[in-house]
Design a protein around this nucleic acid. Structure first.
Length: 514
DNA sequence: GTAGGGTTAG
């Protein structure tokens, strides 16, 4: 346009600056900024806003702020660009200060702030912000709901998610592709495949994200075959899968124990779909082989793959060694894992567990000693559970909950009930050097046990108990919850750090592999 | 024809 000698208008500048911001092209943005100054179109609120936003999108907050401060006239858009710019840089608290000092806030500014909390993984504050938004009588729209639903997904807050859907229909907020995709993900992360499928069916238009979300949702919740069916449907409607879709497909194969199919998908991903496998794809393959007991082949795959094995990959293999009792390779993998990640407490837990199973108590003792010497601390276990619109958090052994006394005495009753049907505590994964009795206490006070005790006290009979946990489940909790599901006739869904455990009638969907 | 906010893995 410039070469052709046409004169740009304010509209031109706004459009080009927006493109620079969205494309992250700071260099071009600065050039356009120069032309704007020479052109004499300033002052112009929209052009100045476009400049502020361009700098904010390019992470140049100082420049954005300088421009903002120099503006004669500002509006809510100018402020919002700064707020979302700061939020994008991870400076949520700073963004919040600015947000609080805004003279006026509309739907977009509230949504930017809510999403800032979501991006910073501060989901409860995101929901709190949404509540405040409603008090301020600013209407929410589809954009707002996507952020709110994402927060519910991460927290496993199904009640809140259900409330959001009612709210949406009351407010006339449409189920567009973005909202639908977020809902599918939310229901999947809450362990409710039925509801995820319900949304999927209800959606009028679907995109790559829709298909990927439902494939992943089915796969992680243990419906491997259905996930693979979905993939074939996706191909039939000519939606192109991407690298994330294949994570879902490979996860599905793992869950369904379809080793050969998994290998086939891995090959076709590379050759038919021209997608280069990354470390996560290899991780899926290691999981697939490991679960099927093909430990040697898994190790060979790691040594031959063109990407550097990370601690997740090696951890996956170590978990497989534990389940299949392959101590030789287990020791080897643990050694490599500790070279990579010396503070990784999971390694010690898995390895010690394997030694204990082989009655190598001297090795168990040696391992414990080295943990003590190195001062390695296990990340505190933490479980979330939603009850009547509130999210309750339990940390192992904590007494901060208002119902704490009741929860602990209920837990004692539960343990007695369990012992009557043959339960005995499995303390092989407790690492502190204390007396046997103390170890039992530590195990009893694991966060998921506290959460379940609270749920049995507070929820309606026969309802599903849903827990979100930050770590991998320990053997003892897994055993105990299996028994609880049978004894009290309750379905329990635990979302692990990496997978789902659906406990029903004394069995777990993971078939004791995790 | 023009300025700010949204979805999938780890």
């Amino acid at each position: 346009m410039v070469k052709a000698g046409a004169t740009p208008t304010p509209v031109t500048y706004v459009s080009v600056l927006s493109a620079c911001g969205k494309g992250g092209d700071l260099l071009l943005g600065v050039q356009v900024h120069k032309r704007v100054l020479e052109s004499g179109v300033l002052p112009d609120l929209k052009v100045e806003n476009a400049l502020v936003d361009m700098y904010a999108e390019c992470a140049e907050m100082d420049s954005a702020r300088r421009l903002f401060d120099g503006m004669q006239v500002r509006n809510v858009v100018s402020w919002t660009s700064l707020v979302s710019g700061l939020a994008r840089l991870g400076q949520v608290d700073h963004a919040r200060e600015l947000f609080d000092s805004m003279p006026e806030r509309d739907t977009v500014s509230w949504t930017a702030m809510i999403d800032g909390y979501v991006q910073a993984a501060r989901f409860r504050e995101a929901l709190e912000m949404f509540r405040e938004m409603q008090y301020s009588n600013v209407r929410a729209d589809e954009f707002t709901m996507v952020s709110v639903i994402t927060a519910c997904a991460q927290l496993g807050a199904l009640e809140m998610g259900e409330w959001v859907r009612v709210y949406m229909s009351r407010q006339g907020i449409k189920l567009d592709v973005f909202v639908g995709n977020a809902l599918i993900d939310m229901y999947s992360k809450c362990g409710s495949v039925e509801r995820a499928l319900g949304v999927f069916k209800e959606m009028h238009s679907r995109d790559k994200f829709t298909w990927t979300a439902i494939i992943l949702g089915l796969a992680v919740n243990g419906h491997g075959e259905e996930a693979i069916d979905m993939f074939h449907r996706m191909i039939r409607v000519w939606e192109a899968p991407d690298e994330v879709t294949f994570i879902g497909v490979l996860t599905a194969c793992t869950h369904a124990g379809l080793v050969d199919k998994g290998r086939e998908f891995f090959r076709s991903m590379i050759h038919s779909y021209k997608i280069a496998p990354n470390v996560v794809h290899y991780g899926c393959m290691i999981d697939l082989l490991g679960r099927a007991g093909k430990i040697t082949e898994a190790l060979e795959t790691i040594d031959q793959m063109p990407v550097t094995p990370n601690s997740t990959i090696l951890g996956t293999l170590l978990a497989a060694c534990r389940v299949h009792g392959n101590l030789d390779i287990g020791e080897l993998v643990a050694k490599r894992l500790l070279e990579l990640d010396p503070e990784n407490s999971t390694v010690y837990i898995l390895l010690s567990n394997m030694y204990a199973k082989s009655n190598r108590w001297e090795d168990v003792r040696r391992l414990r000693q080295s943990i003590m010497e190195k001062g390695i601390k296990k990340e505190p276990g933490c479980s979330l559970i939603e009850m009547n619109g509130m999210i309750h958090e339990f940390v192992a052994g904590d007494c901060s909950h208002p119902m704490s006394n009741k929860i602990y005495s209920k837990l004692e009753n539960i343990i007695t009930d369990l012992e009557n049907v043959g339960y005995s505590p499995d303390i092989t994964e407790v690492f502190v050097e204390v007396a046997e009795k103390e170890k039992q206490k530590i195990i009893y006070w694991h966060s998921e046990k506290l959460a379940i005790s609270f749920a049995l006290l507070s929820s309606e009979p026969n309802t599903v108990i849903r827990i979100v946990k930050n770590l991998r489940m320990c053997l003892d909790c897994h055993n105990a919850i299996k028994l609880i599901s049978r004894l009290y006739g309750r379905e329990v869904v635990v979302r692990d750090r990496t997978r789902f455990h659906h406990f029903r009638h004394g069995f777990c969907s993971c078939k004791d592999y995790w």
